[in-house]
């Protein structure tokens, strides 16, 4: 009975998409924090050695970001080097998919209880702004306009970096298309 409702291919593709997107975002975040003044200014307010995690409940894919100090962020694949200070947890992989495929804004997902915050809210507010800024960089304007509250008019970042991130994104979008086609 139950198995009849499950489309394994689509679900697997969705999970892969979320995994790949966490990788893309993590790496892009690290790169952007080395160059973008606004991200650095936001991140500087986080304690040195601060560990941020975005994950899917109960033990799904995750992304670990460490604040090295002076606004620089580092992406860790897999396990966090130290206990996590701030964790943003999606209640289900389906909700992570909505946000990471930019169909739902991060702030809307918060407002609608699709994810939980464990840790200092003021840090969560900062990380959300950093993620918004990241999305603006790596997404085509049309998609980014849907994913963030406001599209800023002061984007200054080496085009090389942006195009590199967008290549990753292309890989991710293949999974996205597969999910679309099969659900």
């Amino acid at each position: 009975m139950l198995t009849r409702h499950i489309k394994p291919m689509a679900l697997q593709a969705r999970r892969l998409y979320v995994e790949v997107m966490f990788q893309v975002m993590g790496q892009a975040l690290q790169a952007i924090s080395e160059m973008d003044r606004e991200v650095q200014a936001e991140a500087r307010a986080l304690p040195n050695g601060f560990i941020f995690e975005m994950m899917v409940m109960p033990n799904g894919p995750n992304m670990i970001i460490e604040h090295l100090g002076a606004g620089a962020l580092r992406f860790h694949a897999g396990k966090p080097p130290r206990p996590v200070n701030l964790s943003i947890q999606f209640k289900h992989i389906a909700h992570a998919f909505l946000v990471l495929s930019f169909q739902e804004k991060t702030s809307v997902a918060f407002a609608n209880d699709r994810m939980l915050v464990n840790g200092d809210i003021s840090h969560a507010v900062r990380m959300t702004r950093i993620l918004n800024r990241l999305e603006v960089f790596i997404l085509p304007k049309l998609v980014a306009g849907r994913a963030v509250k406001e599209y800023p008019d002061n984007l200054k970042l080496p085009t090389k970096l942006i195009s590199a991130a967008r290549i990753y994104l292309k890989v991710a979008s293949q999974f996205f298309d597969r999910v679309r086609a099969t659900t």
């Binding site: 307010a45 507010v125 918004n132 406001e150």
Partner: peptide, 13 residues
């Protein structure tokens, strides 16, 4: 104010 949780749900960034 920029560190306050409520700012997340404001329509404008």
């Amino acid at each position: 104010a920029l560190d306050d949780g409520s700012i997340m749900f404001n329509r404008r960034e």
